[in-house]
Design a protein around this nucleic acid. Structure first.
Lengths: 224, 224
DNA sequence: CAACAAACCTACCGAGTAGTATGTTTCAGA
DNA sequence: TCTGAAACATACTACTCGGTAGGTTTGTTG
């Protein structure tokens, strides 16, 4: 992978994230590169091919990020939480590439593609499924060792957990806090919400008076 | 709103969800209607205008769904959970419209639009923000009455909760289970995961060794 | 320097697409 | 029945974009 190819990938990811695949023209990417179409078509066969390459790189970055967390010591939920945290950081850090991955999933779902493109996309989605399975397997292990709440449907639970993280692709503004430390704090906050839930746990110090139904009126007064 | 206008909206939402705004041609929508462009341009001024109208309807459906849950009796977290459940059901039921809402958010973020379109989009996003504030306010109330875990950043927590639900727009296959009952079960599973978290709670029958505060440090070591 | 290939640019074509202008039908009310 | 407006359909224009063909530069090797 020459530096030139890599830079094309980066700029293409940016364009695809901002405007989406269809609204992004090859000339847009070229303009961002300070070049012309020729440079892109020299390295990539077609627009969709470029898109797939960005997608592939996005998946590679995800696996790379989560892999180390899987090998940690600790009970099932602790490891699962570490995986989620690593995933969250990766999603924030590489959000341009991961946005393209999300688009690829959508494209696969309603795919109007040629058979050849379809096959490539199938492979990328299979990779995505393998990624999700990492979390599902870890959740199953956590259930077995009793560290995970046992009453949840694992498949739905995992999809919900990953969704909570990945939806940050929609609202995360990297301009605001771009440094690694900010990303880690954000990831920690998201994962804590997901793993611990939001219902107050008994035995903690946050006991307020049981005001009962009062809560509603206070909250509702904020608007309208 | 004549039935004809409404039907255009429904088919447009379907197209926009499946192919995205840019890849959807007016002729596509017309074909789905068994009609031609003329019919659409008679009722809507432009393609983007049609898109905004779908977006607006999507937001209306969300408010309509969550409103009743806000008025329930119960402690803060119980009401919040009910709101999330109502939201989840609405997202699943109207997932075509809500997909368009999500696209609209993206469009607003990187918006290359005319000033007039920009203003319309600003209003729609403001509506979206008001919607999110419903949940944030309820979460604040729940924190005050002690029913919500107090150590979370409310803004991030709410975004994460809603994200967990809304990401179902990506993976939910309505063909598989389209009936209302299935949607409610799915919504319940998602919300339970989000509200209760996945870590086993003490006092339940699935007692593992109390690893206590070890979890955090072990998890934190996973990333540099 | 010669030879050659990789990298990149310029000019262009064909296929679509948003939007418009104008025709045609339907139908309620006078 | 006559009229006019609403609800469409049809035909056309202006424009954009993906992709290609062929030329030009750059770098490398003998």
């Amino acid at each position: 992978m020459t530096p030139s190819k890599q830079e094309i990938l980066v700029q293409a990811a940016e364009c695809f994230m901002e405007q989406g695949f269809h609204a992004t023209s090859i000339d847009d990417v070229a303009r961002r590169l300070g070049a012309t179409k020729g440079r892109i078509y020299h390295h990539y066969a077609s627009k969709i091919d470029l898109f797939f390459e960005v997608h592939r790189e996005g998946m590679r970055l995800l696996f790379e990020a989560v892999e180390p967390a899987r090998k940690l010591e600790g009970d099932g939920v602790t490891v699962l939480a570490a995986m989620l945290r690593a995933h969250a950081v990766a999603v924030l850090r590489h959000h341009t590439f991961e946005s393209v991955v999300a688009q690829g999933v959508q494209m696969h779902r309603f795919g109007a593609t040629t058979p050849s493109q379809r096959q490539t996309l199938d492979e990328l989605i299979a990779s995505r499924d393998r990624f999700e399975k990492l979390f599902k397997d870890q959740a199953a292990a956590a259930r077995r060792d009793g560290s995970l709440a046992a009453d949840a449907d694992l498949s739905i639970a995992v999809k919900t957990l990953l969704g909570g993280i990945q939806w940050s692709l929609i609202w995360y503004r990297p301009e605001a806090d771009a440094d690694e430390h900010a990303r880690e704090r954000l990831a920690e906050a998201m994962v804590r919400t997901l793993v611990e839930g939001i219902r107050a746990r008994p035995g903690r110090a946050c006991a307020a008076a049981p005001t009962k139904g009062k809560a509603r009126s206070a909250a509702g007064s904020g608007l309208t």
